[in-house]
Amino acid sequence: MLEIRDLHASVEGREILRGIDLSVRAGEVHAIMGPNGSGKSTLASVLAGNERFEVTRGEATFLGRNIFEMSIEERARAGLFLGFQYPVEIPGVTMANFMKFAVNEKRKYQGLDPLPAGDFLRMMRERAAIVELDQKMTSRAVNEGFSGGEKKKNEIFQMAMLEPLLALLDETDSGLDIDALRVVATGVTRLRTPQNATVVITHYQRLLDYIVPDYVHVLYNGRIIHTGDRSLALRLEEQGYDRLIAEQA
């Protein structure tokens, strides 16, 4: 589904990603861990198409297509979803209106007619329930005045609405209280199918108790320095990154 080869990217002339290789197949869950500033969000942003970053070398394909030849919205419509580490506020635009546009754009891409209003409302209700998001939030402006935890829940609500093939979840667990973490993580798990894949970026192995990864990657200084299975996350939790980094050096 996603194939990344020797990906280099920089921001303002500074190289952040320095040769990433990663492949993600349908049905898999990958976790990316790594110290602050190592480039995790940058990788997610580059895949989503954030124009702040410049791809300087390497290639990436999504569903067999060169991802860098697709616009941000094309990638999204084709099924790429980024759960933002810092969700953006859009004053004056209600969640419901925002989602109506997003869902219908995707349907258009799939050759489907816009969803009738009643069906759309029912869908919003159902999907909000998956992450126990208060239905009232959908009539509020996107992320405006949402608490940190509500913003994160709202990301997964959007994921539930858009049913992506590939979800990149950037620290969706941070800022959530213990109960909310369980709800959100269970929600993500419920959205799993054999056809889709999930990449979770996280600092805490706790999330991985719920969303059990097939692979755990450690990103350090713009490179994946180590890949292991679930047990790697547990080991990192105990030992921190220093030992692993020293071993790799």
């Binding site: 989503a48 198409g49 954030n50 124009e51 616009s71 941000i72 919205e73 999204a76 419509r77 979803f81 980024l82 933002f84 969700p87 953006v88 506020e89 859009i90 925002f98 546009f101 997003a102 754009e105 995707k106 891409y109 996107v142 959007q158 858009l162």
Partner: peptide, 11 residues
Amino acid sequence: AIYYMRQRGID
């Protein structure tokens, strides 16, 4: 905000 909306498929 525009990037965020585009990431959700809105042109």
